[in-house]
């Protein structure tokens, strides 16, 4: 048995209705109540997602998952296909299972795939990735204020749109946090 304090993104909870992959989690301390862990979980059979909240003092059952190093090959109508770097087996994950993170995948890149009994469950991307800015306008209109700084929207490789400080120019490399989709800093020039 495990504690809800062991809940992380990618762990699998087993309960009477089946296996549930944790897609998001957050520790909650309402002050007026006990401590809780709020999760968003996805059923591995039906694909149904829901919110479940666990009291940190209760016990839950987590199932063993494996983390396998795989190379991203391509995307097509059936989803994202990866190749196991050790066995050369190929696996395909549907778009729903990869979710929003799919846009960060680049041909040939290596990622960790969480699997349960050989079945791919989720993709773990590096938390920070570098992207080249392919389209940035030197504009003064349409700015938004974030954290007291002026930002603008640019497009980086893969067609991803992110908000960056005004000084970022087309052709520069920027580092993006893949969990939040936010700009981190300008990549150092080599």
């Amino acid at each position: 048995m495990a504690s809800p304090n062991d809940i992380k993104k990618g762990v699998v909870i087993k309960d009477s209705s089946g296996l549930w992959l944790v897609v998001e989690f957050q520790h909650i301390n309402p002050g007026k109540g006990a401590a809780f862990v709020r999760t968003r979980i996805r059923n591995l059979e039906s694909g149904k997602t829901l919110e479940a909240t666990y009291k940190t003092s209760e016990t839950i059952e987590l199932v063993e998952v494996e983390h396998r190093r795989m190379q991203y090959l391509y995307h097509d109508a059936s989803g994202y296909t990866f190749m196991d770097q050790a066995s050369f087996d190929q696996v395909t994950m549907p778009d729903d299972a990869v979710g929003d993170q799919g846009k960060y995948l680049r041909d040939g890149m290596e990622v960790n795939i969480t699997t349960h009994e050989g079945r791919p469950l989720s993709v773990e991307l590096p938390r920070k990735m570098t992207f080249k800015v392919i389209e940035a306008m030197d504009v003064t209109g349409g700015n938004t204020v974030s954290g007291g700084n002026l930002t603008k929207e640019v497009t980086v490789e893969g067609g991803i749109k992110i908000h960056v400080p005004m000084f970022i120019k087309q052709g520069e490399d920027v580092i993006v946090n893949t969990e939040t989709g936010e700009y981190v800093e300008r990549a150092k020039k080599e």
Binding site: P30, G33, A34, F36, R38, A52, T53, Y54
Partner: peptide, 10 residues
């Protein structure tokens, strides 16, 4: 209260 919070927080 704990049970209330589980539904309320979710």
């Amino acid at each position: 209260d704990d049970l209330f919070f589980k539904i309320f927080l979710s």
